[in-house]
Design a protein around this nucleic acid. Sequence first.
DNA 1: TACTGGATTCACT
DNA 2: GTGAATCCAGTAA
Length: 199
Amino acid sequence: MERLPRYAFPIADYEMVYLKRDFFARDTVTVAQDLIGTTVIVGNCAGKIVETEAYRTDAASHAAKLTERSRLMYETYGCCYVYFTYGLHYCFNITTERAGVGAVLIRAVEPLRGIAEMMARRSVEDVKKLASGPARFAQAFGIDKQLNGKPIGRDVKIRQRKETPPISASSRIGISRATDLEWRFYETGNPFVSRFKAR
DNA sequence: TACTGGATTCACT
DNA sequence: GTGAATCCAGTAA
């Protein structure tokens, strides 16, 4: 794979740990990769991010054209981008790139806290099915369009992983390319990764 | 204003 | 593996 830049994260700050907006100002693909293993917190619910997808201005992305919906991806970074799809589902993204255009879709998380709440929202008892898919994650965490446009750090927080610093290249991160420009990252061997279909 | 198709999930075969 | 569910953003007229 191509070599990606590392995020210069001060080790001294590392234990404190909530990602700041600058984290998302970088290249979309790098952000998607670095989010693997971090913890997303919404209300009482928390989960480890185990699968992400980078969207830029390729044809498969909403950002292929500037529209009212995609404007967030053009004008912000480090903000929630929530859209409704198939008449049923919400999907949760975080906008990226200070100068460019992009967003990272959270595709799957491993539930850590608030599991009973997630089960109630999802009407599912199998923990593996709680948040192993983009719409499952949004439903389990109670995410809807109210979060659209809100900056990361308040209603939604991302906590840096504890066991290792945020290094882009990791043997524990798998990569899948659905298209030439579309990248998916996932924690290899993690049972909470969704079973996505390659297009 | 009307139509089209979708960054998905689930039930069923 | 296939099809239905179902709302809305985007587009064409």
